[in-house]
Design a binder for these strands. Structure first.
Length: 761
DNA sequence: GGCCGGGGCATTTTT
DNA sequence: TGCCCCGGCC
């Protein structure tokens, strides 16, 4: 083990790692080495005598857990990191709940319903209750139930909770309580928990079974939490219960990056940490190692507008760097075009590869136009956030078979496969079976096993088909007793008719589906052999399902290493960094989202989201907005986001268009000064122009804000060519040239000494 | 049971 | 615009 590991840390990081006298809250600014502190803290604990299995380290994503494990492995020993209890909240407590299933009355091999399963069940229930799904919108009901569970309100207490009932009444959906109740029963009868239920049941386990709580309290001598600002109440309480006796709790997070309140995350957990742990110590990591000073300062000036936050001063000792750039576009189309042009130009400097660029947006729908333009401009890109591997229909179908084999009660999975591939068991028949299951309060599988016994009236054809289906599943279950996970998987895929069905379709999509199923099979082979190397003798389907039901990571991407520009939502970008970041669509009602306009809390969260976006950039951050945007089937005019006005112009280059139209009030200048229209002069040979690779380099140069200086993105009018946009600049003084894309005349390279140009205001 | 077309709809989504 | 869901039709 490396003896000098503490030397890798700066003073405040080291202090946090070494402190052991009580609860610690590490407020870690963007790019301040948060993961490093967490990793080294664990290494330090191991060094000072903690056994690996006594350390509980919780993250939000599998990826984060995996990366941290790898880093710890490289600093210690691989076998040491293997025995750490490190993983996502859900996977860790899934493991514990399976082990303690008897206490809570669930089968040990209970299924996990993902968001789709649970929404399908909610839809079914709404239908069964003969409610109008326009009023009882499944999405709304789902989030109501989810929020309740996150706040530890069980279906029973919901039905007695005046606040909830009043609120539902006010929203004209008084029957949510009953839907929740039915939903809960159905999940329980199916031997299934949704994601939120895992945390709720963990709380119930620890509340009602003292011996279970004591067992884990004794085992976990240290509890560490990553991304603490994203914890919800259920998670907070679990952490608190496990650590209140030992007071050995170490949480790391950044309140300024709390962007998941819509998933139940409660920033108060962080802001009020000291209320729950009175003897806690707060450490602040304020040095940003990622970004230039201008980027950090611009982000700081933005977030300063938020009221609710822990005071801290993030600073950078990197070079000053370029100012953050804000530029406008006429349309979403032109915006994409500008982004593409700048990427192309910066690429031509030879300083970057495509992977050094990311384009971030507020909504997934914005990716389409970017993709379109990137394709025509021959820019390689990849879009994140599309369906993850395990969400794909064909994968869910196969996994549904696995789930039914392991857990016969899993109703959502039975419904999914009973007629896939098509075997003539239609909707009417399924409804009959479901009806019988409901009225006799017996699982769907029991009915399928013997419909007659429950007086289900079926015609001969249907009865035969159901019997055949049943025999097939029985056969799978029998085989599953002796086969390893991948053997049974391949058997199921071929015997169920899935292979045949997929082979029928030779379209591109069809081939891709086939490949995905093949991919799943490969993944299972790999899983089994990895487990066997790890010492497990037989690796069952159950083992695989355990692993896979909480694996929604999209890390199965094959061409991940390829050099491509990244397109993703800001949410998806959290935790990542890129040399050059574009933030597009910076417009009111889009960013911040129109949905947030009614509450200050929501606006502040949107502002944090913008903060997250800016702080992804290491070298250049370019922000764009469009004045016209095609949205929801129509063209809308839009105005620049009022967030832009929160940023201090000492660190940001606003284009002239923004300055004249947005009503921007500069932070450090008299207001009147700003409103005086500036004379628009054609660029003279003396105008200091800089190369594209130096765009806005050095905020110290006064020229940055000079109104006559031509900048990338400026709209200009040429005597002969008409209106155009500056897409790149090159050369100095007499040699200064600009590439301009004219609306009608195409792209021209002009020597500015001669060009008759006017900058449009 | 599967295909087609109209109507309604449209943040973000670590698990 | 484009996706999803449902109802009607073959």
């Amino acid at each position: 083990m490396n003896e000098d590991y503490l030397n890798d840390l700066n003073e405040s990081q080291r202090e946090a790692v070494l402190y052991d006298a009580g609860p610690s809250l590490v407020v870690a600014g963007a790019g301040s080495g948060k993961t490093r502190v967490l990793t080294y803290k664990i290494v330090h604990l191991l060094r000072t005598g903690y056994q690996p299995h006594t350390i509980l380290a919780l993250t939000f994503t599998n990826k984060a857990a995996r990366e941290m494990k790898n880093r710890i492995s490289s600093l210690t020993d691989e076998y040491v990191s293997r025995y750490l209890w490190m993983g996502t909240f859900h996977s860790i407590f899934y493991r514990i709940l399976r082990r303690e299933a008897e206490y809570i009355g669930y089968p040990a091999d209970f299924t996990i319903y993902d968001a789709t399963d649970s929404k399908n069940l909610i839809k079914t229930i709404i239908k069964e209750m003969q409610l109008d799904d326009k009023i009882y919108r499944p999405n709304v009901i789902q989030s109501r139930i989810s929020n309740a569970k996150n706040s530890l309100i069980t279906s029973r207490s919901y039905a007695q909770n005046k606040n909830q009932l009043d609120y539902d009444l006010k929203c004209r959906i008084p029957l949510v309580a009953e839907i929740y109740q039915r939903y809960q029963n159905r999940c329980f009868n199916a031997g299934a928990m949704d994601f939120d239920e895992l945390l709720l049941q963990t709380n119930i386990l620890f509340r009602d079974h003292r011996e279970a709580l004591d067992k884990y309290r004794n085992q976990f001598r240290y509890v560490l939490v990553d991304e603490y600002q994203d914890t919800n109440f259920a998670q907070h309480l679990i952490i608190h219960k496990l650590s209140e006796q030992s007071q050995k709790v170490f949480v790391v997070g950044d309140d300024a990056q709390s962007i998941y309140s819509f998933r139940g995350a409660n920033i108060d957990n962080m802001l009020r940490f000291k209320d729950n742990y009175s003897s806690c110590r707060i450490f602040k990591l304020e040095r940003n190692y990622r970004s230039t000073q201008n980027i950090v300062n611009a982000a700081n000036s933005l977030i300063a507008a938020n009221k609710d936050q822990i005071r801290k001063t993030i600073y950078s000792e990197n070079e000053k760097g370029n100012k953050v750039t804000v530029m406008s576009a006429y349309s979403d189309y032109e915006e994409a075009y500008k982004v593409a042009s700048i990427i192309t130009n910066m690429m031509s400097s030879g300083k970057y590869t495509f992977a050094d660029f990311a384009v971030l947006y507020r909504t997934n729908a914005q990716s389409r136009i970017l993709e379109e333009i990137m394709r025509t401009r021959m820019i390689k890109y990849k879009v994140y956030g599309a369906q993850s591997f395990y969400q794909r229909k064909e994968i869910k179908d196969v996994i549904a078979y696995f789930r039914v084999i392991v857990n016969p009660k899993d109703e959502e999975s039975i419904k999914r496969i009973i007629n896939y591939p098509a075997r003539g068991i239609g909707g009417v028949t399924v409804d009959k079976l479901m009806g019988a299951a409901l009225s006799s309060d017996v699982g769907l599988w029991k009915i399928i096993a013997d419909p007659q016994a429950f007086n289900v009236v079926l015609n001969r054809g249907a009865a035969d088909k159901i019997a055949k289906f049943r025999l097939m599943i029985d056969d799978f279950r029998e085989k599953n007793k002796t086969m390893t996970a991948y053997e049974i998987a391949n058997y199921v895929i071929s015997q169920s008719g899935i292979t045949y069905d997929l082979n029928q379709d030779s379209t591109i999509e069809g081939i891709s589906r086939r490949e995905n199923v093949q991919e799943l099979s490969n993944a299972m082979t790999e899983f089994v052999s990895m487990r066997q190397e790890g010492g497990s003798e037989s690796v069952s389907l159950t083992d695989f399902l355990m692993e896979v039901s909480l694996m929604t990571d999209q890390d199965n991407e094959k061409d991940d290493n390829a050099d491509k520009v990244t397109l993703m939502t800001v949410h998806a970008a959290k935790g990542l960094e890129f040399k050059n970041v574009f933030i597009v669509g910076m417009e009111n009602d889009l960013f911040p989202s129109a949905h947030s306009s009614d509450s200050i809390r929501a606006i502040e969260e949107e502002r944090r989201l913008f903060y997250v976006a800016i702080t992804r950039a290491k070298e250049n951050c370019i922000i764009t907005y469009a004045k016209n945007r095609f949205r929801n089937g129509q063209n809308n005019t839009s105005t620049p986001s009022f967030f832009l006005g929160d940023m201090d112009e000492r660190f940001v280059n606003f284009d002239d268009d923004f300055m004249l139209t947005s009503g921007y009030r500069p932070v450090n200048k008299p207001v009147m000064d700003r409103y005086t229209p500036k004379p628009v002069a054609p660029p003279s040979p003396h105008t200091s122009l800089r190369k594209i690779s130096d765009v806005d380099k050095g905020g110290s140069e006064p020229v940055d804000s000079a109104p006559s200086g031509l900048k990338i993105g400026d709209k200009v009018t040429h005597e002969r060519f008409g209106k155009g946009i500056v897409t790149s600049l090159d050369g100095y003084g007499n040699d200064a040239k600009a590439t301009i894309e004219f609306e009608v005349s195409g792209t021209k390279l002009l020597l500015l000494k001669y060009a008759k140009l006017t900058i449009n205001g």
